[in-house]
Every structure is written in C-alpha cells, then in structure tokens.
C-alpha cells in the first residue's frame, strides 16, 4: 500500500494527497493499492510546480488501529520532531497522532519507495 506526500512550496509544510486536495494530516491520505494508480497520481503531482516541492510515494502498512507509514523517517514527517512534542503536526494530538507515535512494525529509517532507483 502506498500514499503520496510532498512539501508545500510556500511554507515547506509536509502534506499528503487525499485524492482531492493536499492535507496536512497523514490520516487523510488516499491509500493506493494499485501501483499504476499511485504512479499516475505522483506524476500529476510533479506537474504542480507552483504548489509543491518534490512529491513522492511512501510505503504504508496496516497496523492495529489504522494505517501508518512503514518507515520511521516518514512517521517523523507525519508527526514532527521527537525532541519538541509541542511542534509540528503532533502538537494537535488526537488518535491519529497517538497511532503514528506508538505503532510498531517494520520501520525502515529510509522512507522512500524505490530509494535506490531514484538515486
């Protein structure tokens, strides 16, 4: 399963594609089971140069209570820095924050799909 993420050009905020708009919350992500669909969405996002910087797909996985990014790096992007719990998206709190912060699973610290190929 995949989700699509980017940083917003004007302020750098981490955003996720809902299928409709770009949201600041991971929990709003559109989840792609189909690779071709995911890549089409990514290609479309890449053409949006006025709003976005560097859109890319991330691996996500189902865990108890929902879906989270597989990689530790992407969980941090969806949360904020662990040394400042009051900064970043985690400051809002809520069930989605709790899930991202506590989920176990196969975390890889390099989050990007096909990192090697991208290089």
């Amino acid at each position: 399963m995949k989700a699509l993420t980017a940083n917003r050009l004007a302020d750098g905020e981490v955003v996720f594609w809902t299928g409709d708009v770009w949201s600041e919350r991971f929990v709003d992500s559109r989840l792609f089971d189909d690779n071709a669909e995911a890549e089409a969405a990514e290609a479309h996002a890449k053409s949006n140069i006025v709003e976005l910087v560097d859109p890319y797909l991330i691996d996500v996985a189902a865990v108890d209570g929902g879906v989270v990014p597989v990689s530790y790096r992407e969980r941090l992007r969806a949360l904020g820095p662990t040394n400042k719990p009051d900064h970043g998206k985690q400051a809002v709190g809520g069930a989605d924050t709790a899930l991202l912060a506590t989920a176990h699973g196969a975390a890889r610290s390099k989050g990007r799909v096909d990192l090697i190929r991208r290089k």
Binding site: L9, D11, I49, V53, R77
Partner: peptide
C-alpha cells in the same frame, strides 16, 4: 521550476528539511 531554484536558494542557506525549510 524547483530544479532551477534549488541551487539558488541553497546559495542563500535555505534547505528543505523533513518538516519545513
């Protein structure tokens, strides 16, 4: 484009990191 801009912003110390610039 970002490809054109990136080297220029980097020359002014502006990086894109995990959460923001």
């Amino acid at each position: 484009t970002e490809d054109q801009f990136k080297p220029l912003r980097l020359m002014n110390g502006l990086y894109l990191q995990l959460h923001a610039y």
